[in-house]
Design a protein around this nucleic acid. Structure first.
Lengths: 237, 237
DNA sequence: TTTAACAGAATTGTCGACAAAAGACCGGCT
DNA sequence: AGCCGGTCTTTTGTCGACAATTCTGTTAAA
């Protein structure tokens, strides 16, 4: 029984339990959006959602403002908020930014990672590898495992703001991008090779190489995504 | 006639006049923070500010949440919001991110810029150059002119999300960093050479070179900033 | 049939008031 | 004198209600 651990990428700020209602609802709505429970492009009805969450409109509006800050909803004055809907070019934009930023994170990580850090990274990969071998491994990999690896790298970079930017904002958008093309052709073996090569570079402290490898890794993921989107568009037509 | 347009870097979203009170107050507070009218680290008192802006606490709280999204204030539950205060390492973090992101923007701009775009860029530089020759040129350059140039580059990249990220968030933080070291030793001639070299690369459509030059340009700015901060710290002791 | 205007409903924006928590202040104790 | 506990004040969090705007559905006219 795999019982995919479902690593809670949402509870990034561990130990900081949301106390205010607005924060709580913000977290719930964010998860609902990135999990697809809120359809992209759908309108957000304040009275309805307020009663649904059992709170007043005040905290709900604050939560919506925070969602706007996370770029997950768009607010138009006097017209309400809508869940963001990403098209192909916007997805590409996100991957371009991610390529640049994670390249940076990977370079910094390579320059700072200790032997212990490297060992943990490698352990993570082998754990994922074992997971892959299980029945629904592919799904797991595409969902949590991949982000988990990247999450660790960014964490090792030591740049707190970079971490907030990537793990607090961009990764949520990324999950939205992936949601569209839910059943990906899954290129796990290739991605695994790339992951291991990245860890190799980090172990050797070769920041420049680690940066390039990570950029290429994400560029490959982007290509896969674009391919999937194109195919999806054709089916729709 | 230069007629430096004095692009208002604060009113980024031109044409979109803020209609709701919360949006209006958000803009005003953001400008007040980046201009230094709100001291970094100072506490935000809701009742006081609400009466000061002549609004209720509801819209004010929404504005504060948006400021939190822009990373300009920090909110602690049941403790209120404080204007962000950047220390040396945080400033370095911001410059690292900016180096990576503007490098990307510059590469994309080089790949997409038309001859007309290049002409406008060069015009901008010559206009700034003329401005520099005037009495308070150095001050002008450090304040608006430099950001103006970078603003144009990012705009040419064609990546809307990158634009929002840099011009909508990071540049405001940048102004906060610069505010600390208000009287900079101003390296205008060197920065000007770098700017021209960047435009050269863009004109030639050499994205890779443009990216590297921009990264080095920002890395140099970072060095200058760090030097200033260190000097400031010594004076304080 | 299409368009335009109008009335009604629904939704968003704003406000003041109450409840709860944090912080300040003061007195007493070791 | 310094520290601790309790009370009071201030500030934040939450709520319900009202005002203003937008959306909708209907009717009437071209």
């Amino acid at each position: 029984m795999p019982e995919i651990v479902d690593i809670p990428t949402e509870n990034i700020a561990v130990g900081a339990k949301p106390k205010t209602l607005a924060d709580e609802v913000f977290s719930q709505m964010r998860d609902a959006i990135v999990c697809g429970d809120f359809a992209p492009g759908s309108k957000i009805n304040e009275p309805q959602l307020a009663s649904q969450y059992g709170i007043s409109r005040g905290p709900l509006r604050e939560a919506i403002r925070r969602l706007e800050g996370a770029k997950l909803v768009e607010i138009k004055p006097n017209a309400g908020a809508k869940v963001i809907s990403l098209n192909k070019s916007q997805a590409i934009e996100i991957y371009e930014i991610r390529e640049s930023l994670e390249g940076l994170a990977c370079r910094l990580a390579a320059e700072k990672a200790s032997a212990e850090d490297c060992r943990r990274l490698r352990d993570l990969l082998t754990a994922h590898e074992a997971q892959i071998q299980s029945e629904d491994g592919r799904l797991y990999y595409q969902k949590a495992g991949d982000l988990d690896f990247h999450y660790q790298i960014v964490s090792l970079s030591g740049n707190q703001r970079l971490f907030d930017l990537l793990c607090g904002e961009l990764y949520h958008l990324l999950r939205l991008c992936r949601m569209k093309t839910s059943s990906q052709p899954s290129r796990p073996e290739r991605a695994f090779r790339e992951h291991h090569h990245i860890v190799d570079a980090i172990e050797q402290g070769d920041g420049g190489l680690a940066e390039i490898l990570m950029q290429r890794h994400i560029a490959n993921a982007k290509k896969t995504l674009v391919l999937n989107i194109n195919q999806l568009d054709k089916e729709d037509n």
